[in-house]
Every structure is written in structure tokens, then in C-alpha cells.
Amino acid sequence: MKRGMWLAALGFAALAGTALAQGDVIAERRAGLKRMGGHMDAIKPVAESRGDVKALEPRVDDMIAWFRSMPQRFPEGSSTGDTKALPSIWSDRTGFETADARMVSQLEVLKKAAADGDAAAFATAFQATGPLCGACHRNYRAR
């Protein structure tokens, strides 16, 4: 009897740990995506005014790092809870990962323009970045 109770307790602890880990990944990705939106909000006025784009390089670096890791932030089983992730992230994983790879490629263009201090190229690259955000949101994020 004691062994059965001990195994049951261990099972409940494992389930609780899974739920906690799932909650953590959801909270982590929500915070990261909010940070990405903050970067976009901070970049926009500088891009529009053709300001000092070189100063934006650390923001773009953070965005590249984030988006490179983004698919792993949506593991199987993390579709429930405080998330706006649509089931299509998991059912159309190839499409999701392709959209993410497009974003990383575009951010690398943005990074080069920032590193070069080329405000005109940066503004053009920034204009191409926003629609990639929207395309991913339309297919993989609930409103």
C-alpha cells in the first residue's frame, strides 16, 4: 500500500513539474515576444527619421538571437494556458519554421544596414520586416 501511494505521489509530482515547465515556456515566450515588439517600436521612429541606425545594432542582435531560438520555444504540449499560439504552429510546423527562418534572414539584412550605418538601407529593410511579423501572426497567433 505504501509503495502504491509513493508511486502515485511521484506521478503527481511529475505531472505538476510538466505543468510548471509548460507554464514557464509560455511565460518565457510571451515575455520574449513582447520584448521583440518593444524593439520594433523603438526602431520604427529611428528608421523613419533616418537617424543613427548604428545605435540599433544591439536591438537587432537580440532579435536575431530570439528568432533563431523561437521554434524551440513552442514545444509539443505547450499549446494550452495563457497563450495565443494557434494549433497551426504544431500542425504546420514546417510553415512555422519557414516563417521564422524568413524573419531571421530579414533581420540579418537589417543588422548589416545597422552595422554599416546606412540609414536608407536600414529604413528599406525595416519596411520589409514588419510584414513578416504580420504574416506569422495571421497564421500562427490568435487575436
Score class of each variant (00 low, 15 high):
38 G>T: 02
121 A>T: 00
41 D>L: 12
29 R>E: 00
53 V>L: 02
113 A>L: 01
85 A>W: 15
132 L>P: 12
121 A>E: 05
59 R>T: 04
55 A>Y: 08
49 S>P: 08
7 L>N: 04
100 D>K: 04
121 A>I: 05
60 V>T: 01
84 K>E: 11
129 T>M: 14
31 A>W: 09
136 C>Q: 11
8 A>Q: 06
25 V>A: 09
48 E>P: 06
76 E>G: 09
48 E>R: 06
139 N>C: 03
61 D>Y: 08
126 F>S: 05
16 A>V: 14
72 Q>C: 04
24 D>Y: 15
142 A>Q: 09
38 G>C: 04
80 T>V: 11
118 D>S: 00
109 V>Q: 14
123 A>G: 03
91 S>K: 09
72 Q>Y: 10
106 Q>I: 07
31 A>F: 09
110 L>K: 04
82 D>R: 13
96 F>W: 10
57 E>T: 10
123 A>K: 10
82 D>I: 09
70 M>W: 13
16 A>F: 15
4 G>S: 15
83 T>P: 15
82 D>T: 14
13 A>V: 13
109 V>Y: 09
33 L>K: 00
30 R>S: 10
22 Q>I: 12
28 E>S: 10
127 Q>I: 04
41 D>E: 14
141 R>D: 09
86 L>H: 05
93 R>L: 05
132 L>R: 13
62 D>A: 15
89 I>S: 05
109 V>P: 07
124 T>F: 04
62 D>Q: 01
104 V>P: 11
28 E>L: 08
1 M>D: 15
49 S>F: 11
71 P>F: 02
63 M>D: 14
18 T>F: 10
132 L>N: 07
35 R>L: 10
72 Q>R: 12
90 W>N: 02
80 T>E: 15
80 T>L: 11
70 M>F: 13
99 A>R: 12
100 D>I: 03
34 K>C: 03
16 A>T: 01
30 R>Y: 12
106 Q>N: 10
110 L>D: 10
16 A>K: 04
70 M>C: 06
122 F>M: 10
116 D>C: 01
40 M>G: 06
2 K>G: 12
122 F>G: 03
39 H>K: 01
132 L>Y: 04
92 D>A: 04
5 M>A: 12
123 A>R: 13
138 R>W: 13
67 F>D: 08
121 A>Q: 05
5 M>I: 04
119 A>H: 09
79 S>P: 07
91 S>N: 06
129 T>G: 00
5 M>L: 15
65 A>N: 07
43 I>W: 01
105 S>Y: 09
43 I>S: 00
51 G>S: 02
15 L>H: 03
9 A>Q: 02
45 P>E: 05
28 E>D: 14
80 T>A: 10
3 R>P: 03
66 W>D: 14
7 L>W: 02
101 A>K: 13
91 S>T: 14
97 E>S: 00
1 M>I: 11
93 R>G: 05
17 G>E: 00
116 D>H: 02
108 E>G: 08
110 L>I: 07
80 T>K: 14
114 A>Y: 13
20 L>Q: 06
138 R>T: 14
75 P>Q: 00
128 A>M: 05
88 S>Y: 08
97 E>K: 03
32 G>H: 02
101 A>S: 09
54 K>L: 05
64 I>N: 00
19 A>H: 03
78 S>L: 06
36 M>G: 00
98 T>D: 15
50 R>N: 15
120 A>P: 05
34 K>F: 13
134 G>Q: 01
136 C>I: 01
102 R>K: 08
